[in-house]
Design a protein around this nucleic acid. Sequence first.
DNA 1: TTGAAAGCGCTAACAT
DNA 2: ATGTTAGCGCTTTCAA
Lengths: 329, 329
Amino acid sequence: MAQLAGVSPATVSFVLNQTAGQTISAETRERVMQAVAELGYRPNRAAQGFHRGTSATIGFVNHDVDFGEFAAAAIKGAHEASLRHGNLLLLVNTGGSNRQAEHLIADLLDRRTDAFIFAAVGTRAVTVPEAALQAPTVLLNCYTADDRAPAILPDEERGGREATRAMLGLGHRRFAYLTGKPAQWSTKARLRGFRGALREAALDPDDQVVLSGNYHADSGYDLTRELLRRGPLPTAILCGNDRMAVGTLLALFEAGIRVPEDVSVMGYDDQFQLAAEVRPALSTVRLPYDLMGQLAAERLVEPAMAGSARTLVHCPVLLRGSTAPPTRG
Amino acid sequence: MAQLAGVSPATVSFVLNQTAGQTISAETRERVMQAVAELGYRPNRAAQGFHRGTSATIGFVNHDVDFGEFAAAAIKGAHEASLRHGNLLLLVNTGGSNRQAEHLIADLLDRRTDAFIFAAVGTRAVTVPEAALQAPTVLLNCYTADDRAPAILPDEERGGREATRAMLGLGHRRFAYLTGKPAQWSTKARLRGFRGALREAALDPDDQVVLSGNYHADSGYDLTRELLRRGPLPTAILCGNDRMAVGTLLALFEAGIRVPEDVSVMGYDDQFQLAAEVRPALSTVRLPYDLMGQLAAERLVEPAMAGSARTLVHCPVLLRGSTAPPTRG
DNA sequence: TTGAAAGCGCTAACAT
DNA sequence: ATGTTAGCGCTTTCAA
């Protein structure tokens, strides 16, 4: 390469990297570019990385048993944002095991991964292997007690609050809340939002029905049948997520109850190819995993907002066909 | 490191890599291991890779607009299998653009990626950038006309056939097949299987109702309403996938029709957290993306079965609550 | 304005 | 049985 252009390798490096503080004559530059084009020369990034001690690579660590569409959305966002800065994602999946996480992070570090995105699918507290903190790390949908690394989290309380407010705005006063797994961070936060919105409307949260589920579709179904058994239905049912809402829809239809004419149903997540495509289309709260992945990747590159330990991402309410003003008292 | 053990770096390399044909005394080996432990020394994999011209890295190229749970399942399988051989996945997403695919593959090659898994979500013919073939490449859920690279594909025809056979075995004779996107490879193959099974049972495929959908839940809903409008329902409805089946369930329940008492419903995919959790639980055909991802990664390491260009992976029928013997003639 | 040379950490021939 | 040495392809001081 260098000899074709009749210059030294150093010169090639200077023009290709546009190294600052270097003065290369237009003529030489031209000659180099010509040779590059002719040979289809591409610098060996592995060698570059080796020399510089970096790899232009971000370790995306999925630290959860769940590795499905939510992880995919986060990865997609992180990938796009990383790419803009010339970085690629080295992906690993710990299956939620701390031991495996340690192994994988050590491996990633051996490869000189520049930074880490440490992600969970179900929002929760995690312990990040000490080693990870050698490199810039941002937590995605998880957090540590000591906030040693910045975390990107969904603002679930606000999500729950705004969903409830939307239903209140429609005129609903009698609710059932079919929650996800009671112990989970997201469940508790959303429920807090629910209660808060009710109080704002001068309603007593304890007058409303709250049933605990587990985020699976069948729990939405079972809980709705339970509701049916208990007697007069509320006018609005809020579900822990969209899958539960689908279970609710099924149970309601089976019982001959119409949505949204007889009762309104609201999901959570805006699950891809589900919430918007079910009939009636689900009103829901969008959990923007893709945006969060993107923010995580950007945070790594621009630690500008270094102050805030936890970034809360807004989850907007989406009103679709499954909700309407109540027709019964 | 080397000096602590009082040996040369080469010796360290020999004992750590257990280089074949090398004779290191037990004593020296011991001394080296001691120093390694003491220093917590870990070889720089980037430097290793640079020297060897490899990276212990597989480029997983998602070449599809769809990057969701099916891609995640494939990645999970590929990740696990790769890890067993010490390889990690460098993940890129082309969004289905050939131009982007070329860029990304060039980037991956610059980083000395050892091999490629080139994957699509919807099974289809692809054109693989010429550059990719510099490294071992296996196609996952896609294929090229010239079969220049081995492909891992689901055996959709058999899946369609066995699903239909299962329903025939239950006693069904009057079917509706609500297909996915008619132009897609998988749709055609499944339909072929459907027709084949009918002929086996001495039934004329043309006597059955086949309606074209698009794999979205709402098309299952709409098509089922269309079926309802047309008059007497068949005893079994086969859907293009599980999401369409959910749409079908919704439309049926809404119309006061019970599943599986009045009509049996069958999906396809065994979609995670949907098929098994909906009520009634969907009978379906499992599309084993995780297994396929695993096979792809293994194929890369052991090109043993180098002969077969296309490996067809079996999609087993799963019978759950949404199917039963017919109760009406 | 450019080139020479050292060196990143490792491995593989080649010596000893 | 072990050490020496060269070199992988690049970047970066330093010198010319």
